[in-house]
Design a protein around this nucleic acid. Sequence first.
DNA 1: ACGGCACGTGTTAACGTTCACATTGTCGCC
DNA 2: GGCGACAATGTGAACGTTAACACGTGCCGT
Lengths: 340, 340
Amino acid sequence: MPSKKRVTVMRDVAKLAGVSHQTVSRVLNEHPNVKQETRTRVLEAMQSLNYRRNLAARTLVTRRSHTLGLIGFETTLFGPASMLYGIEDAARTAGYLVSIATIRNLDRREVLDAVDRLSQHAVDGIIAIAPKPSVTNGLLQAPTGLYCVAVGGGGEPDAVPTVRIDNAAGARLATEHLLGLGHRTVHHVGGPSDWPEAQERVTGWRDTLYEAGAPVPPVAFDSWNAEWGHRRGQELAQDPSVTAIFCANDRIALGVLRALHEAGRKVPEEVSVVGFDDMPDSGYFLPPLTTVRQDFAEMGRRSLTLLLEHMGDAEDPGPPAHIVVSPELVVRGSTAPPPR
Amino acid sequence: MPSKKRVTVMRDVAKLAGVSHQTVSRVLNEHPNVKQETRTRVLEAMQSLNYRRNLAARTLVTRRSHTLGLIGFETTLFGPASMLYGIEDAARTAGYLVSIATIRNLDRREVLDAVDRLSQHAVDGIIAIAPKPSVTNGLLQAPTGLYCVAVGGGGEPDAVPTVRIDNAAGARLATEHLLGLGHRTVHHVGGPSDWPEAQERVTGWRDTLYEAGAPVPPVAFDSWNAEWGHRRGQELAQDPSVTAIFCANDRIALGVLRALHEAGRKVPEEVSVVGFDDMPDSGYFLPPLTTVRQDFAEMGRRSLTLLLEHMGDAEDPGPPAHIVVSPELVVRGSTAPPPR
DNA sequence: ACGGCACGTGTTAACGTTCACATTGTCGCC
DNA sequence: GGCGACAATGTGAACGTTAACACGTGCCGT
């Protein structure tokens, strides 16, 4: 007949090894004061019984679940998805599991709800993919003792530690590259105007033009997708003076490329185009896209390190730390000197 | 002075409401036998104390964590990332949290490791993004009582319930579309030969050609990315008899488009190209890509439903259920009748 | 020789829930 | 009017782990 108790617990291991359950616990937690011989005996017992410790019980008493929460936004896109990957990757090595709570918009309500859901499940900390301040603000509402960091955001440094990319520097790289090729000025197709990241890219681009004494053409904002790039590209294609276009991301650039092609304007012979992000297949656009690469996965990893550090600091967290990573220009076939 | 007890627990709520902790528990679990008046009194107490129940304690005694595990592969790509999204979306509505364990390759070891990690954290069930049988097989190793389903796989129906797309039908749609336009035959650029999904697409394509009495050109396999499409596209571009190419996915198609363009062969005037997946910006390729759409997020949602059903069925699970979803042809500008 | 201290181990009590059972009261029905 | 059924609540014991303390050893210094 089948035994009533299904899984083996500490007590079973202890009995087999001829010690108390506490000693088993000590072995498990690598407590120093256990004789080598007992340790191996316990380990053998665990092995032979195929023992796995019950994390729920452990969590109950230690108040640490060894689980981290991730608040994600638009995680189907390459950038966020890669951050998620980087975070999970680093978390695994650090012995944590990652639980996700995606939000469908950036309302404060949604964020609070996600924080609530995660904290109910007793996560030890939260990483938020936080492109807008509303998210970071929501994070501040988290129960005390719950550590939070934000990744991939923009705007002014916040009350929570942050990992972000230097968008202005990236925009500068792109703009300087184009000016360096001899273009009189550079046009810009913006992302959504209410995203700090989009604004920072505008700033970097504009400042570079100013400093170079180049005229600053008007910017239009809308969204991050190819449809917008296509729409805006059609307008720019009408203007023969446009020879260089810096797009707020690669998807917009894709739309711009198509619009230029449809208008019969050759890239890069007549018009140069630069993107931002370096999505997986940007190198296979027509022509291959020159772009500003950001290492999303690395940002994810860094944010996890930051979170763990933050959690490690006992009571006094000190001022929130901020990590800024630098983007990198990838030159491909979509940029060339202007026609003469 | 600050009180020693930090968080409020059931006992506190009970005391404030003037009932026993068990009654509070009953209110929380919506047990029928609680007087309306007491219920509201308890609810008010919970509200005013800002009580949140401790899920770890609950898990310890009920052995249900209300957490689901996800084993993910290449989650930075659009398909898997969308499935993940769909799964999380459905899980949230069902009151579950999703924990992720990504695997970096499809080895059995990695899968076992992921299952182990998830089961340590006491997940109630596991959904695996399982493109190759090795994953599904690993799933069978899961501890008894842990329910698993696979999503997005291929190959023969497995021992675990599965949600998959009808790859052959999708390939058929693409091929018939091209034949219907008047092409004598259709070439195919395959994915990785050891992926069942890639093979099924080949099968659907080949069968359609057979039935139509069209010649079946040789297939080459390699990987899923644009680089491969570009490489293979260069070869196909040399052959003037090639007028229609069906690619195993959109990324490959992107590479093929570029190769054709470089070889001076116009799409769709001289050569038609069809993809598979319908990635976000396929509609803005040059030209806009005709493709076979699969609804990844929906597959994710369906897989969650399947898992919950499976978990609900008490002891006897019956034969594993399989859901097959149908893809859909999206006609855009990359296909046209052959040159005459 | 003896107090003290470090080691190795065991004992008991939490942690915050839910479950099984016991205890009331209230109603309806023969 | 008694008696069973059921509704509403309370009591105690799990669940499996770690924390806090207590208990023996053996060794060192004075």
